[in-house]
C-alpha cells in the first residue's frame, strides 16, 4: 500500500513505457534484421515478450498492490500455468505426429 497521492511524477510508469518500447523494437530488430535460426529467434523474442508482459503487470497494473496483492499474484501464476498447458499442449499434441494416422 505504499502508493499514495503525494508523488508528483509517475516514474515507474515512465520507466515501464520506455523499457516496453525498447523491448518491442529489440524484438522486431532481432526477428527481421538478423540471420539467426528460426528456433533461436523465437526463443529470444518469446522471452522478450514474457519479460515485457511481466513488467507491465507490475509497473502498469500494480499487481501486488492492496490487501489482495498476494491473491492476485497466485491467480496470475495459475493463469500463466493454464496458458502453457493450453498453448504448448495443443501444439505438441496436434503437430508432433500423435494425431497423424
Amino acid at each position: 500500500m505504499e502508493h499514495h497521492q503525494s508523488k508528483s511524477f509517475p516514474i515507474s510508469h515512465v520507466i515501464g513505457f520506455v523499457v516496453s518500447l525498447v523491448l518491442t523494437f529489440a524484438a522486431a530488430g532481432i526477428a527481421l534484421k538478423t540471420n539467426l535460426s528460426f528456433k533461436v529467434i523465437m526463443w529470444i523474442i518469446g522471452s522478450l515478450a514474457v519479460i515485457q508482459a511481466g513488467m507491465q503487470l507490475f509497473m502498469f497494473m500494480h499487481l501486488r498492490e492492496g490487501e489482495h496483492g498476494k491473491t492476485n499474484l497466485i491467480n496470475m501464476i495459475y493463469a500463466v500455468f493454464m496458458v502453457i498447458v493450453i498453448v504448448v499442449g495443443s501444439i505438441w499434441v496436434l503437430t508432433s505426429g500423435h494425431a497423424s494416422h
Partner: peptide
Amino acid sequence: DVVWIFIFTFVYLKGLVA
C-alpha cells in the same frame, strides 16, 4: 496491451521470420 505483446511476437514477428 499485454495480449497485444503476444500477438505482435507470436503472430506478426513469427510470421515474418520463417
